[in-house]
Amino acid sequence: MSPPGPPEAAPGNPAAPRRPRWGVLALVGLVGLGMVRQGLTGETTGPPQPGAGSALFPGDLPPDGPAPPPLPRSVPSRVAIPSLDVSAPLMPLGLDGNGRIVAPPAEDPGLAGWYANAPTPGENGTAVLVGHVDSRSGPAVFYGLGALEKGRTIRVTREDGRTAVFEVYGIQVFDKRKFPSRKVYGTTGRPELRVLTCGGPYAAGSGYAGNVVVFARMTGSGQGDPPGR
């Protein structure tokens, strides 16, 4: 898995992300995620894909209403998507030599990752989570991501004891050859979250042709693990 690489940390200050290198990001998509679908026992239709009604429309940006106060930087430890019965630990991810995000280990399909040099979930800016869609043994952590609906909640628990709560406002599949980096990673001036996995048509040998991208905005935060919907 080699997702596109969002901002790097500034030299000497790992807590301060740089602006995205759009020239690099535009050349890479979410490559390699779930490229072992042929190993799934009994799998015939593949993971669910977003419907037309889930797409991101122009009216969805900028977000309506005031943004909640951003949180300080804190390492995220777990992501929960209650409507998909997802609750997964998070590991920090960096970039490979080609400027792509290094994948969570394929041998642990229930593990997701966060791009460590971008804003952390709850900070002002766009945080990024990635995970596999499937594995040789079956569905992986974000197998159902394409079935997520607008208005659903994503919760990210952080090491400072706070939980950043996000509301989904768009889910789309993008061709990895034409990955719209500015649209996906660009800032909206408030805390945002993107969750990525593979999707779209699948071909043996080349894998999934597209990337499922969930767009979500922070709606609040609290201590511990608040209920979602």
Rank of each mutant, 00 (worst) to 15 (best):
residue 2 S to G: 15
residue 63 P to W: 08
residue 15 A to G: 14
residue 183 K to N: 02
residue 137 S to V: 01
residue 21 R to M: 13
residue 93 L to R: 11
residue 189 G to D: 10
residue 50 P to F: 01
residue 131 G to F: 01
residue 42 G to F: 07
residue 48 P to I: 00
residue 213 V to L: 07
residue 93 L to A: 06
residue 160 D to Y: 03
residue 222 G to I: 00
residue 197 T to G: 05
residue 121 P to Y: 01
residue 49 Q to T: 11
residue 13 N to L: 09
residue 9 A to R: 15
residue 27 L to K: 15
residue 213 V to K: 04
residue 20 P to D: 11
residue 174 F to Q: 00
residue 129 L to M: 03
residue 105 P to S: 06
residue 10 A to H: 15
residue 78 R to K: 10
residue 102 V to I: 10
residue 28 V to N: 14
residue 42 G to A: 11
residue 1 M to H: 14
residue 201 P to C: 06
residue 136 R to H: 07
residue 44 T to K: 13
residue 80 A to H: 06
residue 13 N to G: 06
residue 64 D to S: 14
residue 92 P to D: 10
residue 126 T to M: 07
residue 184 V to L: 09
residue 72 P to Q: 09
residue 205 G to V: 08
residue 135 S to C: 00
residue 52 A to M: 09
residue 109 P to T: 02
residue 10 A to D: 14
residue 16 A to W: 12
residue 18 R to P: 08
residue 198 C to Y: 01
residue 137 S to N: 02
residue 90 L to F: 05
residue 111 L to A: 05
residue 50 P to N: 03
residue 157 T to A: 15
residue 159 E to L: 12
residue 52 A to S: 11
residue 210 G to S: 04
residue 87 S to G: 11
residue 98 N to E: 13
residue 173 V to A: 04
residue 158 R to K: 07
residue 173 V to I: 10
residue 65 G to M: 08
